[in-house]
Design a protein around this nucleic acid. Sequence first.
DNA 1: GCCAACGTTGGC
DNA 2: GCCAACGTTGGC
Length: 152
Amino acid sequence: MKYWIMKSEPSEYSIADLKRDKRGMWDGIRNYQVRNMLRDDMRVGDMALFYHSNAGKETGVVGVMKVVKNAYPDPTQFDPKSAHRDPKSPLDNPRWLAVDVSLVEVFSKLVSLSEIKSENFFADLALVRKGNRLSVMELSKKHFDRLCKMGK
DNA sequence: GCCAACGTTGGC
DNA sequence: GCCAACGTTGGC
């Protein structure tokens, strides 16, 4: 079982939206490295932290979710109405994948990016390493557990 | 809004 | 295959 951190801009899809929906499709991933991780490494039962990106002071980890469906073709790539549509993705060989997640817990307290950066414990966390813009990243159980504790 | 750090595209 | 131009991410 693996642990992940998954980013979403709250203006696009926030943890409040996931709380409302209880279960959601994590779609719109348009990066090959991330797609490959979803395809090859992410499995039902894996745990993931929900991270609000591009959210000013509210940027940080806001809760926990669980993977409830393995990677499958992301329908938004073929949706003419979607901002994530990819006209170059072949219908018979979809380029992009999505997973389904369900909400496990909303943190009572935001674990802000600045807080995470200020702790040496997280020095080797991919999220805070320079130049890492991937929207999905694996993290160690010890980092996962610590972040969960900080959110309570 | 700025900009660093990427990733992608397409001409050659 | 190289690389310049362009687009995107995401912190600040």
